[in-house]
Amino acid sequence: MTTDTQAAASVDPYAEAASTAPVHFLYGLNPLAKLAAPAPAMLLLVFVRDLATPAAFLLLAYAVIVVGARFTRRLALILLVAVPLGIAAIGFGFALWTDQSQVADTPVVWQLGGWTMHVGAFAIGLATGLRLGAILALALPAGLTTTGPDLARSLVQQLRVPYRIGYTAIAAFRFVPRFGHELEVIRQAHRVRGAHGGRGPFAAAARWAGYVVPLLAGAIRHAERVALAMDARAFGAHPDRTERHLVRWRVRDTVFVLAFWAASAAVFWSTYPWALALI
Rank of each mutant, 00 (worst) to 15 (best):
Q6F: 14
S10T: 07
V11H: 10
Y14M: 13
A15V: 01
A15R: 13
E16Q: 12
A18K: 14
T20E: 09
F25D: 09
L29P: 10
L29S: 10
L35K: 14
A37M: 04
A37D: 09
P40E: 09
M42L: 11
L43A: 04
L43E: 05
F47W: 09
R49C: 05
A52D: 02
P54D: 01
P54T: 03
F57G: 02
L58Q: 01
L59S: 08
L59D: 07
L60P: 07
A61E: 02
A63H: 05
V66Q: 09
V67T: 14
V67P: 12
R70N: 01
R70E: 03
F71L: 13
F71T: 11
R73F: 03
R74Y: 11
L75G: 02
L77M: 12
L77V: 08
L77K: 13
I78W: 04
I78M: 07
L79M: 09
V83A: 00
P84E: 01
G91C: 06
G91E: 03
G91T: 00
F92M: 15
A95N: 07
W97E: 15
T98G: 12
V103H: 10
T106P: 02
P107F: 00
P107W: 05
V108L: 08
V109K: 12
Q111K: 12
G113D: 02
M117N: 08
M117H: 08
H118A: 06
V119S: 09
G120Q: 00
I124W: 01
G125D: 00
A127D: 03
G129S: 01
R131S: 00
G133N: 01
A134S: 08
A139R: 11
L144S: 02
T145W: 03
T146C: 05
T147M: 11
L151Y: 06
A152Q: 10
L155R: 05
V156M: 12
V156F: 10
Q158D: 12
L159R: 11
I165N: 13
G166A: 00
G166Q: 02
G166E: 02
Y167V: 03
Y167G: 04
A169L: 10
I170S: 13
F173D: 14
F173K: 14
G180I: 06
E182Q: 11
A189M: 08
R191K: 11
R193G: 00
G194R: 04
A195E: 15
A195M: 15
G197L: 07
G197K: 09
G198K: 05
G200F: 02
R207H: 07
W208R: 15
W208H: 15
A217Y: 13
G218E: 07
I220E: 14
I220T: 13
H222C: 13
A223D: 12
A223R: 08
E224A: 14
E224G: 13
A227R: 13
L228V: 12
A229G: 10
A229W: 10
A232V: 06
A232N: 09
A234Q: 12
G236E: 04
R241V: 05
R241E: 10
E243L: 08
R248T: 11
R250D: 03
V251E: 15
V251D: 14
D253I: 02
T254E: 07
L258W: 00
A262V: 10
V267P: 04
W269H: 15
S270F: 14
Y272V: 15
A277N: 03
A277R: 08
